[in-house]
Structures are given as C-alpha cells and as structure tokens.
Design a protein around this nucleic acid. Structure first.
Length: 570
RNA sequence: CGGGGCGUAGCGCAGCCUGGUAGCGCACCUGCUUCGGGAGCAGGGGGUCGGAGGUUCAAAUCCUCUCGCCCCGACCA
C-alpha cells in the first residue's frame, strides 16, 4: 500500500476527550473516529488490526472444531420473552419497533437466536457435539461507555455456542474452547491470565475470563504466588482466618463524637482497622438486613447475593439505615439489631472488637459473638486482598492485578435449552435436554488491550501478528529518483514475498515520516536515504527495541522476511 | 440514575466574569527557501460561537429551556 494513496489521518495533539492511552493512540494513529458515545468508525489501519485478530480467532475456532455462521443483529422480542430475558436484561437491551409495531431488539448476545436454530435443526444425539460461532457486531446500551473501543456500545464480538448431549460432554467442549482461547491470545502477543470468574447475568455453572494485564484495566484479579489459582476478585475465595485467643472483656460503650468512618473511629480509638467490625445495611429482595465485615475488608456484593440466594441486592438508603438502627448513618452495630445478620468468615475468630452502638456518637468496645449477639450465619462475603492466603494451596498467597477482560468462556448447562426447549433423542429414543456453553471474545477490545500493553512515548508498538502492516518502507527524500526507485523495489519485492508493506512515498520531510511511522506502530521500518543508498545500503529499525542495522538491500529483504515469518509461525 | 465539567475553524485552545459584531497555535491552500526525527518566511481560505427562546439599541458573552460529549460515583457506616 502506498501511503500517499492511503487514508491514515494521524494527529499530533491528543484529543481532549480520550482518557486512556489506547484510546488516545488509536485516535492519534488514525485507526478510529468517534461517531457517537461508544460508537466508532473503523478507519483503514484500525480495521486492518481488527481483521488480523479476527483471522487468528477464526483459525483457532476452526481448528477447535467450531463452525462459522452469521446471525442477525436485529432480533424479534418473542425469543427474548421466551427466555425471560426481555424483562430481565434491562436498559442495556436496545429495543425498538418496526412499522407494524412489532417489537425487536439489537442483539447484545445471541443465546436465544442460536438456541432457536439448534432446537429446530438438531433432533438426535448423533448431531452433537456441535459448536457454532460468528464474528459480528453487538449492541449493548452501556450505562457509561468509555475508553474508546474498550467499552463501546456497538462493538465486534466473536461468540461461540456449544451443544452437547450431557454435562461431561459439555465439559470437553468447554475445555477445547479454553485451550483455543489460550492459543488465540498467545498468538496475539498478549500478556494475559485465565481466571475463574463469576457467571453474572449470562448465568450458568462456571466460567473463566481471559484477562490482559494492564493498570488501566477495569477488573481486579488475583493469582496465587505459587500454584495455578487465579480468579476475578468478584469470585476469588477467601480462606477463614485463625481465631484469636483473648479472654472476653466486658462490653463497654464509648463516645465517638462525629466519628463515622472506619478510618475516623479507629484513629480516634487508637486501634487497627482489623479490630473493628463494620455493619453494612443492605436490602435483599426488599428485606433489610445487616452484614458484618472486618474494618479493613470490603463487602463483595456478588458473593453476598449468592449466599443469600437473592435476585436484587442493594445498599440500604440513609432512611432505611436510620429506621433499622435508630441512629444516623455511621453508628450501626449488630448488638440489639432486629434484622437478620450475616457475618463474613474473617470476623468469626475475632474477640473484643469494636462496633457501632446504634446511637449517635457512640460505639461499643469489647464486643463478642454469642455473648452480645449472634449472626444468623458466617460466610465468605468479602473481597480478598493482596497477601491473603491462597484458597487452593497451603503455602501461596494472593497477588492483586488489574486486567482487561478480552475473553470469557461459560459453561451454561441447560439454562437456555430448558427455557427454549432445545431437546434431542438419545440412543434409547428418550427425550433429553441439550447442554450448552458460550464463549465470547471482544475483537476491538483485544486490539485496544494490545495497545495498552504495547506502546511507548512515541506511539503504538504493535506485535507483528496484529499490526496493520508488518513493515513500513520510508523513502527519506521522495524527490530523489534513485531513492524512490530503490524504495519502490523494496516495496515490490517484499510485497511479492507476502510481507504486508506500507510504502511511505509521500513528499514529506523525513521527521514527519518517522513520527508517523512510530505513532502507528509498524513493527519493522526500512529507511531508504540517499547517503546510505550510495553505498548500496538501507537501514532496518525494529520499532520495539529501537535496534538499527545498516544492510545491503537484498539482506534487508531477507531479514524482514525472516523476522515476519518467525513472528507469524510461533 | 446522582454529582462535576465542557461545547467557539479539521484538531488543541483564548475571548464570556465587566455585552459593542471573533482570535491564537497546529493543520489546510499558493509561492520561495529548506529536506535523516513533526522546517522558515511571505501571502491566503475556512467559524449562523451546539440548538431554540428570551432580555437589550446591541448577545459567543446575561437569563431560560434543550441537545451532545467527557469525567467521577452508584461499597457506604
């Protein structure tokens, strides 16, 4: 591709509305442009990288035995009503009506549609296992789209759905996808972790998320320092803490004027936050209840909702707190409370702790379980913290990371096949419910995550497998005929050899060409200048390392070819 | 949904408080010089100041409404 005839609108200044580095660089490198909040145009360079990721995904999905189809974005309400998600999905589901007033939505995911296909066409155990996938535009009307392609409302996703005769066959399908995902993200050159994850609104039995490690990531994940355990903090299990052995002292009410927060109270009393139990009031399916967590720990609402088995869980409003505790917010405590109490495991062994006293400006010291109050149950309902013991091995401790979720695999079980009555006849002629799994990859997000992980002060540093071009040939002086002839020759030779070359034939000053080349992140750069060319040489610069070598033309060609081949065949 | 901020030329911004009919840098066009890390000089084009309404002799500027965009929050005892 000749740069002068291509479309790469780079910009020097960082657009003011871009916050994270990948968003800024994708805008500056002319890869994307915003059309509306969370909705983007893909310009040529951006599209090329996206196509690269898609190609890798396609290869690995096909290798794993999945079969490509393409389903519509526009989906009839009836299917969603059948799965009950028309009501449950909420405002993220973009709904609209056609001219006949029939209701439709733009698909945020395709469980309903794919299950509809399968229930019509799959009748026998002989037709499974079956895994159907597509690469397609999804629409989710996110509360707050942000960070460019990282969290858009319209985005490209690969979604796959597996159909199996029973649970253990479904496990094999799940495992094949899991392994395929590992290969995909390895081939994309990403530093990632596969972590145990909560199943969220999709539902199902268990799942893993594929997280690209990056400080700007929206998710917190943990991994064990010694074993293979890794999980999203939403899901990560906490081990019980060894009990203290202090003798119970007598309960004491202390004045804590204006001290509401954990920090204020513990500082005022001169105790560590771990000696205090905070009492959080929540409303679960309409019922107010109290939740106890150690002062230095945070409540994990997802775990709590699971423990309570409730549908809706929210923090209680100020009014409810005051009504339940009889005190202003900041002084809630478990002693004398009339609502159900659930306590975190880590509080179980605590003795002589501090709590609120359900009265303005008062706390209790030396509170003890059983003597002063008794929670209905102890359960793991907190977020793990850095340094917590690993739940799976005796020696390890948990390390905390930030991650960008680029892929997610779910074992769904029969949630959708039951709702939509997708069944088959087994070898005995008996009707059985199909077992499903679903598997997603955010294509655009993968490109963005890659940039988060691969950039420097000058711009993007693409790994070869998903770079829009492998190599850029920069003709330093476009007016010098010998330079242009040589550069043109390199461009043709490399292109004929299957290397994707962007030929910067623009009549620009060298500085601008170098800046642009760095910004758009092409991994390899051949610089053709009159001085070196007089000696029959060109310069090869590696974007990532900055390494420069002066080579005769034919050697430069061989170098580029072998570097590209090595990167693509790993 | 709550809180905060911003909409002025393609991009980044000033002007607004204290009304008087729009400016800077980059980009773009022309010419000359320059040419290995975002050149210099000279000339030039481009904006119904997000939109609607109001106040006023006069509105980018003041008031009201509205639309769009960005950030934070929606874990707090």
């Amino acid at each position: 591709m000749r740069y002068s005839q291509y479309f790469v609108p780079t910009v020097k200044e960082t657009p003011s509305d871009a916050e994270v580095i990948s968003h800024q660089l994708m805008l500056r490198a002319g890869m994307i442009r915003k059309l509306a909040a969370g909705i983007y145009n893909y310009l040529p360079l951006g599209l090329r990288s996206i196509r690269k990721v898609e190609a890798i995904v396609r290869e690995e999905m096909n290798r794993a035995g999945a079969i490509e189809i393409l389903m519509p974005s526009v989906q009839p309400a009836e299917l969603w009503q059948e799965s009950k998600r028309w009501e449950k999905y909420g405002k993220e589901l973009l709904r609209f009506k056609d001219r006949k007033d029939a209701e439709f939505c733009l698909g945020p995911t395709h469980e309903e549609v794919v299950t509809d296909i399968v229930r019509r066409e799959v009748k026998s155990y002989r037709q499974m296992p079956l895994n159907l996938y597509q690469i397609q535009t999804k629409f989710r009307d996110e509360i707050r789209p942000r960070f460019g392609l990282m969290r858009g409302r319209e985005f490209i996703m690969k979604d796959a759905y597996s159909f199996d005769v029973d649970s253990s066959a479904a496990d094999s399908s799940y495992d094949r996808m899991y392994q395929a995902y590992r290969r995909i993200f390895q081939r994309c050159g990403l530093n990632f972790r596969a972590v145990e994850a909560d199943t969220g609104s999709i539902g199902g039995a268990f799942s893993h998320e594929f997280m690209v490690l990056a400080d700007s990531g929206e998710d917190a994940i943990v991994s064990c320092s010694t074993c293979e355990y890794a999980a999203n903090v939403e899901k990560a299990e906490a081990r019980p803490v060894a009990p203290e052995h202090a003798e119970p002292r007598s309960l004491e009410r202390v004045e804590t004027p204006q001290k509401r927060s954990v920090e204020e109270v513990t500082a005022f009393l001169g105790i560590p936050a771990s000696s205090l139990i905070k009492t959080l009031l929540v409303v679960a399916d309409g019922e107010p209840l109290a939740v106890l967590v150690r002062g230095d720990h945070d409540l994990n609402e997802i775990k709590l909702a699971k423990v309570l088995g409730c549908e809706a869980l929210e923090m209680a409003s100020e009014e409810i707190v005051e009504k339940v505790t009889g005190a202003p917010v900041g002084f809630a405590g478990p002693v004398g409370l009339k609502v159900r109490i659930v306590a975190d495991l880590a509080t179980q062994g605590m003795r002589n702790f501090v709590t609120g006293a359900n009265a303005r400006d008062l706390h209790y010291k030396n509170v003890n379980f059983d003597r002063d109050f008794a929670p209905e149950r102890f359960a793991d309902i907190r977020n793990v913290v850095h340094g917590d013991p690993c739940p799976r091995c005796p020696a390890g401790h948990l390390e905390l990371w930030r991650g960008i979720e680029v892929g997610h695999v779910f074992k769904l079980g029969t949630k959708y096949s039951e709702a939509l009555r997708a069944t088959y006849l087994d070898a005995e002629g008996k009707e059985q419910t199909i077992f499903m799994g679903c598997y997603g990859i955010g294509i655009g997000r993968t490109v963005a995550a890659c940039i988060e992980q691969n950039h420097d002060a000058d711009g993007i540093v693409f790994p070869i497998p998903i770079a829009p071009f492998h190599c850029i040939v920069s003709a330093v002086n476009a007016k010098d005929a010998s330079v242009m002839t040589a550069a043109e020759g390199l461009y043709r030779t490399l292109t004929d050899a299957g290397v994707e070359v962007l030929f910067d034939d623009r009549d620009e000053r060298p500085g601008s060409k170098f800046k642009d080349a760095d910004l758009i992140g092409i991994p390899l750069r051949l610089v053709v200048g009159s001085k070196n060319l007089a000696e029959g040489k060109v310069e090869l610069k590696i974007r990532k390392s900055g390494e420069v070598s002066l080579l005769p033309l034919d050697e430069a060609v061989e170098q580029v070819k072998s570097l590209v081949a090595a990167a693509l065949n790993q």
